[in-house]
Amino acid sequence: MCLGIPMRLVKINGDEGMAESGGLKRAANLSLLKDARVGDYILIHAGFAIEKLKTEEARKTLKALREIGA
């Protein structure tokens, strides 16, 4: 029901952010996010950042998958 795509936050101006990914830039509304920082990967849904992505958790997930059955 809800498409969300990860993009990197490259600029912050109050609640207005600019997010980038693969050469694509799009305004991102940051009003639903606490403590957004430039460089964060954020999840964008319908123009709004709804969550930050946690690198450490992503790594853990991938590591667990690689180790399955090994």
Partner: peptide, 12 residues
Amino acid sequence: TRGVRQACELLG
């Protein structure tokens, strides 16, 4: 190309 791929992700 990555630009097309990314735009497609964004717009579904």
